Simulated scan of single mutants.
Amino acid sequence: MDKKCLLVAFIFSVSISSVISIRCYQCSSQTDPKGVDNCGAYERFNKTQNIPIECNSDESHMPGSFCMKVVQQGPRGFIWDGRWRQVIRRCASVADTGVTGVCNWGVYENGVYWEECYCAEDSCNHALNLQTSVKLVTSTLLLMLIMKFLQS
């Protein structure tokens, strides 16, 4: 019995420490100098140029237990701050969907496409991309169609 309690305590402490100590990339194309792409809005994200930060440290702009990446892309001719695409990478404490490991996307009324990806592993917000969400959306729509067909 004591070995089981010890094992449960060990697993609990490991899971708590991994939640507390998650590290995420933190950058925003909004803060990039003109003509510079440090956050990977237009070019591939450079992991050697950016260092993941501890989410519950003073360095973090927002504390959290997982990472997120937000992409916003305006339609042709829609430009803010001299850019038509923005990327934000940071820690997060609450996912709009309540789950991590997924990407959600949509289009605002002004035509700006947005995508938010959440993940729960160290440094995981470096490469989340549209392909993940397209696969998720496609499979979800296919599943919904199959369910609707079976109900008929």
Rank of each mutant, 00 (worst) to 15 (best):
M1P: 13
D2V: 04
D2Y: 12
K3E: 13
K3F: 09
K3T: 03
K3D: 07
K3C: 00
C5K: 15
L6R: 15
L7R: 13
A9C: 13
F10S: 04
I11S: 08
F12V: 14
S13K: 07
S13V: 03
V14R: 14
S15A: 14
S15M: 14
S17Q: 07
S18D: 08
V19D: 05
I20F: 12
S21E: 03
S21K: 07
S21V: 00
R23T: 08
Y25I: 00
Q26L: 06
Q26R: 08
Q26C: 05
C27A: 05
S29N: 11
Q30K: 04
Q30Y: 11
T31H: 04
D32P: 08
D32Q: 09
P33A: 01
D37Y: 14
N38W: 08
G40L: 05
G40I: 08
A41E: 10
Y42S: 10
Y42I: 05
R44Q: 06
F45D: 03
F45Y: 11
K47F: 07
T48D: 15
T48Q: 15
Q49L: 14
P52K: 12
C55Y: 14
C55A: 14
C55N: 13
C55F: 14
S57C: 02
D58L: 15
D58T: 12
D58E: 14
D58F: 13
E59S: 12
S60H: 04
H61K: 12
H61S: 11
M62N: 09
P63D: 02
P63Q: 01
S65H: 05
C67N: 00
M68H: 14
K69I: 01
V70H: 05
V70L: 12
V71S: 03
V71F: 11
Q72M: 10
Q73P: 02
G74M: 08
P75T: 01
P75C: 01
G77T: 02
G77N: 11
F78M: 05
I79D: 02
D81A: 07
G82Y: 15
G82Q: 12
R83W: 01
R83N: 06
R83A: 04
I88K: 03
I88M: 10
R89N: 05
R90W: 06
A92R: 07
S93M: 06
S93D: 06
S93N: 06
V94Q: 12
A95Q: 00
T97E: 10
G98Q: 06
V99R: 09
V99D: 06
T100V: 15
G101T: 03
V102W: 07
C103K: 01
C103R: 02
N104F: 12
W105P: 00
V107R: 13
V107E: 13
Y108E: 13
E109P: 03
E115S: 04
E115C: 00
E116Q: 04
E116L: 09
E116M: 02
Y118C: 02
Y118D: 07
A120D: 10
A120L: 00
A120R: 02
E121N: 06
D122W: 14
S123N: 11
C124M: 12
H126T: 02
A127E: 06
L130C: 02
Q131R: 12
S133V: 07
K135Q: 13
L136Q: 10
V137P: 00
T138Q: 15
T140F: 15
T140E: 15
T140Q: 15
T140Y: 15
L141W: 14
M144R: 07
L145Y: 01
I146V: 15
I146P: 06
M147W: 15
K148Q: 10
L150N: 09
Q151M: 11
